[in-house]
Design a binder for these strands. Structure first.
Lengths: 241, 241
DNA sequence: CGGAATTTTGAATATCGTCAAAGTGAGTGG
DNA sequence: CCACTCACTTTGACGATATTCAAAATTCCG
């Protein structure tokens, strides 16, 4: 049996983690085998389905998590029911507000989702022992700040047309972060029209109209509402402003 | 000469820091006297006036800073000139994007501003030595995430009226974080009408109209354009949605 | 195949933007 | 101290964009 140079303790990595596709990309990338073993004692995989709520807005935070599969939406709601999606999370994002007892947002699954959940206390202890973990979380927080600001520009200054195109561009980048040149791409929308509206600060009608328009001018093709083929990536990029 | 119990090394605190009003509140609160001495070797106070740019959008980051006095605006601009303010920074906020070579936003003074500037390298070394510093910066990053999301709700879902009222409420909280009951408050706006528009995703005309309306219904008083007296805090809170 | 949920589309309306003109205030120099 | 200038703000009339409300069409799923 061959043992690789650095992964001499690889057999010590918990089974749970060995099968985790995003183990090296997320927060856990900062942990070595021994730390993973320690960590895994306090984690468990939780499966939720579309519509299930992981954290309530202003609800207490009992556990944190890492997304392993699927899409989560973070929403804020006004007293009269108006809603805004303020973030989307994909694997391997960290879920939950650190250093705060209440979640400032509602966290809800947009699709079938698997997360790797860890208790508050276990994470706190791990953070105390392992500064590299905190560095990872700082990195994610800074990325979220950047993403949030990118969307503030869209919400405040872009037209409905540009908002919808920007959202599609965001989906393209989610698939292929380097979205080079004019390579055609296809993907399934993780959100309903209503959710797209909640994300873009638009109504469902306006979202639908602008998608129809992008379809009519030949920028995209739409199959069965959810599936998008990008026929002209450059034109889509232009439309995004 | 009396030396207090814990601050036995107080005389070692750099003069620069001794006179810093926000020394304990910002990032530097994580440093002891010796560390401050070390730190202060690489810092200098920089004074800038309204309109001066500390960081360009996509410009290289040569130094970080802490706000000591005044207000900074963080903006993003589209190719055709449309602009959005994506954040405001006050003392003792940390300025600059960590772990990234280019600033994702333009940082510009809204008023006379003093910052305590530190070189990239000096901060990096300090962070390596002092995990508590990173914890402080993580805290600020998380606060900025929360603030950004709060504004996304306003930008995406609030009416012009609610946006303007929300902005005034934000100013009230900036003065008095607990903005209790119905205590009247007064303050000077740190932004011009145009800047308020860029912040709220509105035009200057709409901002002015909504301020006039709040004045006419007796919620606020306006003196010489910049000074606001809040006459009815509860009504303002209602107007903010 | 049938019913529910979602999406598309249409017509009328409201909100906010655009453009332009008038008003106000701060700073400067006489 | 006053008048002048310039930048900023207010206000108005009109128009464009997105919303609202409602109905028709499509897709999903049992």
């Amino acid at each position: 049996m061959s043992t690789s140079r650095k992964d001499i303790h690889n057999s010590d990595v918990p089974k749970l983690c060995q099968s985790c596709e995003v183990r090296h990309k997320g927060m856990c990338g900062a942990l070595n085998a021994n730390e993973l073993v320690d960590f895994a004692k306090h984690t468990r995989v939780v499966k939720v389905s579309a519509g299930d709520v992981l954290l309530q807005e202003q609800g207490s935070i009992r556990a944190y998590a890492n997304v392993m599969r699927g899409v989560l939406k973070l929403t804020k709601t006004m007293a009269d029911g108006r809603q805004q999606i303020v973030g989307l999370q994909f694997a391997p994002d960290f879920v939950g507000r650190l250093h705060q007892d209440e979640s400032p947002v509602r966290v809800e699954a947009c699709s079938g989702v698997e997360v790797c959940s860890i208790t508050r206390n276990a994470l706190r202890k791990m953070l105390e022992k392992n500064p590299a973990l905190e560095t990872k979380l700082l990195h994610q927080a800074l990325r979220e700040v950047d993403q949030g600001r990118e969307w503030m520009l869209a919400l405040g200054r872009k037209t409905a047309r540009e908002k919808v195109a920007s959202f599609l561009m965001m989906m393209v980048r989610q698939i292929d972060p380097f979205s080079r040149g004019n390579a055609a791409t296809a993907f399934d929308l993780p959100l309903t029209r209503a959710e797209m509206g909640d994300f873009l600060g638009l109504t469902i009608g306006t979202v639908s109209r602008e998608l129809t328009r992008l379809r009519r001018v030949g920028v995209i093709r739409i199959s069965s509402h959810r599936h998008i083929d990008v026929l002209n990536l450059e034109a889509l990029r232009q439309s995004a402003g």
